[in-house]
Design a protein around this nucleic acid. Sequence first.
DNA 1: TCTCCTATCTATACAGTGTCAAGTTGCTCC
DNA 2: GGAGCAACTTGACACTGTATAGATAGGAGA
Lengths: 231, 231
Amino acid sequence: MAAKRGAGRDGYHHGDLRQAMIDAAEAVLAERGVGGFTLRECARRAGVSAAAPAHHFGNLAGLLTAVATLGFDDLSDAMEAAAARASATGGCRLAAICRAYLETALARPGRFRVVFGRRELDKEDPEMQRAGARAFGILVAETRAHRAGLAAPPPGPLPSETAKAPDFAEILLVWSVTHGFTTLLIDGQFDFLVGEDGGGAMLDLFSPRLMQLLVAGLAPEAALANRGHDG
Amino acid sequence: MAAKRGAGRDGYHHGDLRQAMIDAAEAVLAERGVGGFTLRECARRAGVSAAAPAHHFGNLAGLLTAVATLGFDDLSDAMEAAAARASATGGCRLAAICRAYLETALARPGRFRVVFGRRELDKEDPEMQRAGARAFGILVAETRAHRAGLAAPPPGPLPSETAKAPDFAEILLVWSVTHGFTTLLIDGQFDFLVGEDGGGAMLDLFSPRLMQLLVAGLAPEAALANRGHDG
DNA sequence: TCTCCTATCTATACAGTGTCAAGTTGCTCC
DNA sequence: GGAGCAACTTGACACTGTATAGATAGGAGA
């Protein structure tokens, strides 16, 4: 095994290139966005040759996959924290995690875009699969708890297979509306409506009302009221 | 003005390079996806040098903007046709246009991704702005008609500024859930739930139920029932 | 009909990209 | 103290988008 002492480089070997590359990637994403992201630029910032990262990440997709894994876990952390805060203050946990999703994405749009397929990723990577499943699991648990009228999801592992669950459509509804609003906002699709002030105004003006609508529409009574609409 | 006779090329000048480039772009998007899209490959298929398209589109973003404009109009056409069909058969127009949005995206995922910001576009392009506004206008009209209990939106021009409208959150809810579900489905985020059979199963299994939920949640009564949830 | 204008297209070049192969360095363990 | 090996550099390759300069041809005006 090679040197793994501290960060920075003081010789031929870097010391912790893997982490340095991830840090550089985050910085490049923040400064230049997904479109301006380059493996060589990250290597440059890490003070290393262009071919060096290959040993740690395989290729560009490998580096982006590592960033996406971080992004998923960041999303999970933010949602868990928001849910805990909501419980403490008597707020709605489901609305809180949806808003946390939105705010996390808005805080780091570049990373969020990497997570959600704007660049090629290694979808077989087990670490990213774990992180993705964790984030989805939070969404599933909170949606179910909300619909069951519980204060919070019960502890314990989640069922691994949820595709056949009867409340699957409700779970997808929550994810879809949150993800859709987030994506449209980040991608500037609302700019022609409210100007290009970065979306902060949009978030403050409409997301509470949006979440209110979503959460209201998801209450058990509303879900059971079959009004017979179909396309 | 130079030659504008027929398609194909029989000499130094192509004849209709602009259209040929767009056709080639659609083909490349269908075959290789957004990630594998290249200006040079499109030029190759059009039988033209790499620098030729610059005269018609300026640069890569210009070509993609033309494709995005087509994509917006395709979306609008599909939604209008679906709404008309729904009216004829007594179905719900709003659910019909949401499903049309989904199906259009699923039929040409590459183009849909171009429309919604997976590559850099020229957002100032007036043609694309027109096409985008048209698609959004359909959504606005149909959502309002649905909430007002009308059979169809009244004819006539739409108000150009809708940001301050009282029903803006409801309109965004419809767009967000439809766009979110579409994006997640196309990007393969549901694959780990139902396998990678292309999303067709997902669409058939869940989207009717999803639309039912959405449309039910949007009925005037539900929207007015303020249950007091906030994040 | 001839000439010129101008849009269109080609050829070439350039900086930059991701990735590969081969060589170099230096830590670690026997 | 070598041996082994992971980590890194160097150099090369086939690409990319785009800029520039020159070639071509269709049509308008004389």
